[in-house]
Each structure stands twice: as structure tokens, then as C-alpha cells.
Design a binder for these strands. Structure first.
Lengths: 184, 184
DNA sequence: AAATATACGGGACGCCCATCCCGTTTGTCT
DNA sequence: AGACAAACGGGATGGGCGTCCCGTATATTT
């Protein structure tokens, strides 16, 4: 393999990652890479050396987050039981989306392929998600013919709804609608 | 006002409109204006004289379509009665979306503001839509607290679902899910 | 048929952005 | 402390796109 990164390179990489995560979350994926660099106080070259493309940058951010999400899904399955874990996870993702425009863009397919990232991650997000879905179906909480694509579409709907006025009441209502819709 | 358009100008305008409608429907809003011009067999200048901006071009297409949609909504209200008209219209829009990527892009907010167009149209699409929704709520088919933004979000979900494999069965299932979700 | 306004074509312009490159600086190792 | 490799900065490059302009062609009018 290769040597460890030089100390300043490590710091810069971490800082870029941090700033990019904040920025994409707050403003979505359309923020130029130049801008990320500027805010991180580094040159554009530094960003593109660590992350050759914009996509690879966002991917790195997502990979971090995914580990947490998968862990959270597993926790929920333990604590809540199969009947409720799915909806708890669904609600967590909606909450996440409310605070993370970049994720919403990615799920909406705005400029890059979420599934591709998910599949090459060490953490099998899709698998975890599917696990919760199927467990809930076996527990009889969710109609048996619903698939992951249906769920993703509904998730997109909940996130989309946030754009027309973020509103706790509306968010809760959307969750109820989804829950009722998915009932067997 | 101004004189009538010259004959060739009228023909070109109509042809551009037709080609643009087909192209946006088939490939979405990201198709360059150059490409529309090329396919219509005219220069880019001709397109931009009739439609100064890309947005104004798509807007013109949408305005045509909207008249039909509003009419269709009114018909449904008469034929089906308030209890069912809303879902019939919803299903019609999903069908429309399946055949019209441009519309899906517009609803998803990809690059331009659907609501702005809707509001300046002679045909009050939002009003028609709201009318159907409120009638269905009075008839007890739909939960009273749902609003248009909820409905639009669910519509987006149905259209989004199409991208992961257009599939009659899946489409019908999504409609069922939405219907069940919106029940009082 | 001549005169005039109108419209056409498509190249030119300007903007934005991701990516690459290279002269300069800075950490690291001896 | 000196030498070498590693990393930095940010300007340059290339590509895509919408919009504007103007010399040329064509419909309309008299």
C-alpha cells in the first residue's frame, strides 16, 4: 500500500469533509466545489486531490453517515421489535432528510446515483432496509406486496413535502398517511 | 396590438412547440434548446425569438396541457361524483407523468417553478385540483386535514416510483397505497 | 415586380462549473 | 540543518448551455 498521509493533508482532508457535509446538508448538492474549498479555507486543488470528483466527495460523506444509519436500524429492530422498527427507521430518515438537503437531492436522483453508492458501501444499507421491511411484513404490519422501490418513493414524498413549508404537524401527518397506506 | 405572424413564422412556432412537447415528454427538461431546434429543423434563433427563454417554451407547452387537465377534472367531477373524482384525477396525472418526463421534472422542481406557471395560467389548475380535494373531503372519502402539498408530494412519489421499473402492477399498488393512506 | 418589413439561421458571446496542472511551500526523515 | 518527497493554491483548460445578434432570405404589400 502507500504511506500514511502527511499531517497537514490529514487535517485538510478532514476539514474539507466536515465543511462539505455541512454545506451539502444546508444547501444541497448544487453548491460548487469551489465554494466548498473556499469555505474550508483551502484551494480547489486540495479538494480535488483528496476527492477526484464531486461525486466521490459526496460519496465519502454518505459512507460515514451510512454506518450510523445501519447501526440505528439494527438498534431499532432490537428495541422496538419488527412490527414497529420499520416505521421508526422511516421516520428517522424523514427527520434526517429535513436537515439534509444533500441527501434529499441524492435520493431524488439530482445529479448522481444513490443506489450505486449504497451498493459499494461496506455497510449494506439496502440490505438493512430490506430486512426491516420484510420483518414488518412477516409481523403483519405492512402489506406483503410492497417493495423497496415503493418505500423509497414514499420516503421521497415525505421529504418533498418538507419543501412546501417545513412543519411538524405536516410531517407527522405525512407519516400517518404513509403508515395507513402501507397497512395490509 | 401587433399584426398577425407571418405564415412561415406561424408554422415554425407550431412545429417547435410540437417537437419540444414530444422531446421534453420523452427525455425530460434537461434536453438543450439547441437540440429542440435541430430536431424541429430550424435555427436556434428561431426558437428563441418565439420563446425568449427555455422556461417560456416549456411554459407554453404546459399551458396547452393544463386546459385539457382542468377540463378533464371537471368532467370527472360530473361523471364520477365527488367521492371518486379526486382519485380518478390523481390516477390520470400519474398516467400522464408516466408518459411525460418533462412534467415529472417540473413537479420535482428540477430547474423551474411549476407553481409559478400554474398560477399565471388562464386555467386555474390549482383551483380545480383543490376543488376536487375539498369535495372528496366533504364526501368523506379523504381525511379532512390533508392539504394540496400533501397530495402533490404523494403524486411525486407515484411518479418517482415509475423510474424504478415502469410496471402496471406497481403503479396500481402505489395508487392503492395512496388511497388507503388518505382515507379518513 | 419592386419595396419593405419580417423572420430565418447559426455563429458568437458570456456564464458556470468540474477537473487538471505546475510553480511554490511545507512537512518529514536522516 | 539540509534534502527530498508530499501537498498546496489557484489559475488555466475544456465543455455545456442559454441567449443575443446580424447578415441573409423570404413573405407580404402596393
Amino acid at each position: 500500500m502507500s504511506r500514511p498521509l502527511r499531517a497537514d493533508a490529514q487535517r485538510n482532508r478532514a476539514r474539507v469533509l466536515e465543511v462539505a457535509a455541512e454545506t451539502f446538508a444546508a444547501e444541497g448538492l448544487s453548491v460548487p466545489v469551489h465554494e466548498i474549498a473556499r469555505r474550508a479555507g483551502v484551494g480547489t486543488g486540495t479538494v480535488s486531490r483528496h476527492f477526484p470528483t464531486k461525486e466521490s466527495l459526496f460519496q465519502a460523506i454518505l459512507l460515514d453517515r451510512m454506518e450510523q444509519l445501519v447501526r440505528q436500524a439494527a438498534d431499532l429492530a432490537d428495541r422496538e421489535g419488527p412490527a414497529e422498527a420499520f416505521f421508526a427507521f422511516f421516520a428517522a430518515l424523514v427527520e434526517e432528510g429535513a436537515a439534509n438537503k444533500g441527501l434529499v437531492d441524492a435520493l431524488a436522483g439530482a445529479g448522481f446515483d444513490f443506489r450505486a453508492v449504497a451498493e459499494q458501501s461496506r455497510y449494506d444499507v439496502m440490505g438493512a432496509w430490506r430486512g426491516l421491511l420484510e420483518a414488518a411484513q412477516r409481523a403483519g404490519t405492512i402489506r406483503g406486496d410492497a417493495d423497496l422501490a415503493d418505500v423509497k418513493a414514499l420516503l421521497t414524498a415525505c421529504m418533498d413535502r418538507e419543501r412546501h413549508g417545513p412543519d411538524r404537524v405536516a410531517r407527522a401527518r405525512m407519516l400517518t398517511i404513509v403508515r395507513d397506506g402501507l397497512r395490509p
